[in-house]
């Protein structure tokens, strides 16, 4: 059972709004987990960054929005990835010239680790011999 009012509003909510809400919460959870695991305090981070605790407080104050740069700074200081952007590169391409119509297949592999929620890709290791016959490798 779901509220019809909520369904109606959610259906017209821009996708970016939904993505932002989820990303922000995910980031908070992730950072919180890292801080707990590493046992960081404001003072210890200040020492690590060779800054004063007040400078750290200012840097992480309520006026400081989560920008890409601030995420990068935090990632550098915490020593853990906070934001992972998958990079795709082609592993192999297959162009069939044995039939009248040319088919083209490109297989991409994920080159960075992905969060648990995403699909995992394993990189294929194709072998293409001189006759252009594909062999699949596990």
């Amino acid at each position: 059972m779901r509220s019809k009012v909520a369904d109606r509003i959610l259906s017209k909510t821009p996708e970016e709004t939904k993505i932002f809400a989820r990303l922000y919460s995910d980031l908070i959870m992730h950072i919180n987990r890292i801080i707990k695991e590493k046992g960081y305090s404001q003072k210890s981070l200040a020492d690590k960054m060779e800054k004063s605790p007040s400078e750290i407080h200012k840097w992480l104050s309520a006026e400081h929005n989560f920008t890409l740069r601030s995420i990068a700074k935090l990632q550098a200081e915490l020593g853990e990835e906070l934001l992972i952007v998958p990079v795709r590169k082609p592993v192999f391409e297959f162009n069939s010239k044995f039939v009248k119509t040319t088919y083209s297949v490109t297989v991409y592999s994920q080159t960075t680790s992905v969060p648990d929620k995403s699909e995992s890709w394993t990189e294929a290791e194709p072998v293409v011999d001189s006759s252009k016959e594909l062999k699949n490798a596990a």
Binding site: A6, I9, L10, K12, T13, P14, T17, K18, F20, A21, R22, Y24, S25, D26, I28, M29, N32
Partner: peptide
């Protein structure tokens, strides 16, 4: 209107579907 949509997304998606009603949120 946009604040309403953002709040609803936070409740139903972040809390409801992603993390639950945990103390951090």
């Amino acid at each position: 209107e946009s604040a309403t949509q953002a709040l609803l997304s936070f409740i139903l998606l972040s809390i409801g579907d992603d993390h639950g009603a945990i103390d951090e949120l």
